[in-house]
């Protein structure tokens, strides 16, 4: 049975006052839903690679797995609220990113399905390719708006530092891989990988900064 979230501990001079002694129940932890999404996507990918399911079934399962984003966002917001601060900009960011993510899965699924089944001209193919591209642009716009709208200057600073870390990762890895590719040492990587690579770098940086905040450490 899920335990209730413990109230904040009165600690007038402590470095960290939000580490509650009791952990929330399994289904109230964002990590549970985050891991579930990764597992679901991994499983669907495995089934698709091994041809256990066809493309249409894979697409439907991906859309179904995307619904796990709702409890992930809900528990993440509840956790932030329990820690004493929920920025309105973060709430807007989560809502916009969730919409863009759904748009991406739907757009990608439709684009792949149409491309596989219909003979398209170059112009039509470009239009079909826009189906997943526009939601990704939406994600990038959402990230930019968060930095503009965040009124807490430290959280804004953290987001900017995380974005720069992601950018550094993309530039470093892209340059390294690009030259290896030029000399035919490694296989070709599609250019759309820049966004996931940037987002991964940003995510790692945000996790590190959040961990440092929780422990009250100094870099």
């Amino acid at each position: 049975m899920a335990r209730p979230i413990q109230p904040l501990q009165p600690d007038p001079v402590g470095q960290v006052t939000t580490e509650a002694p009791g952990r929330p129940g399994l289904f109230r932890r964002p990590s549970t839903w985050g891991a579930s999404i990764f597992l679901a996507f991994g499983l669907i990918l495995l089934l698709r690679i091994t041809d256990a399911i066809d493309a249409t079934t894979g697409f439907i399962l991906m859309v179904a797995a995307m619904t796990l984003m709702f409890p992930l966002v809900k528990t993440a917001l509840a956790r932030q609220k329990a820690q004493g601060y929920l920025s309105p900009a973060i709430t807007r960011y989560n809502r916009r990113f969730l919409l863009a993510s759904f748009g991406y899965v739907l757009g990608l699924g439709l684009a792949v399905t149409i491309n596989d089944r219909v003979a398209l001209s170059d112009g039509e193919t470009i239009l079909i390719a826009l189906l997943p591209i526009i939601p990704v642009f939406g994600m990038i716009w959402t990230m930019a708006r968060y930095i503009v709208e965040e009124e807490d200057e430290y959280l804004r600073h953290r987001a900017i530092m995380a974005s720069l870390t992601g950018l550094g990762l993309v530039l470093t890895f892209g340059t390294f891989w690009g030259f290896l590719e030029t000399f035919e040492v490694v296989p070709h990587i599609w250019a759309w990988w820049v966004f996931p690579a940037w987002a991964i770098g940003m995510g790692i940086s945000q996790c590190w900064l959040a961990f440092r905040d929780r422990t009250g450490g100094r870099s």
Partner: peptide, 25 residues
């Protein structure tokens, strides 16, 4: 005052207070 109390009085996040206090920001 707790960090949370100070954060609320300043209308910033507790993370901000913590980062400023520890000299990280």
């Amino acid at each position: 005052w707790s960090q949370q109390t100070l954060a609320e009085k300043l209308n910033v996040s507790r993370q901000s207070v913590n980062a400023i206090e520890t000299g990280r920001y």
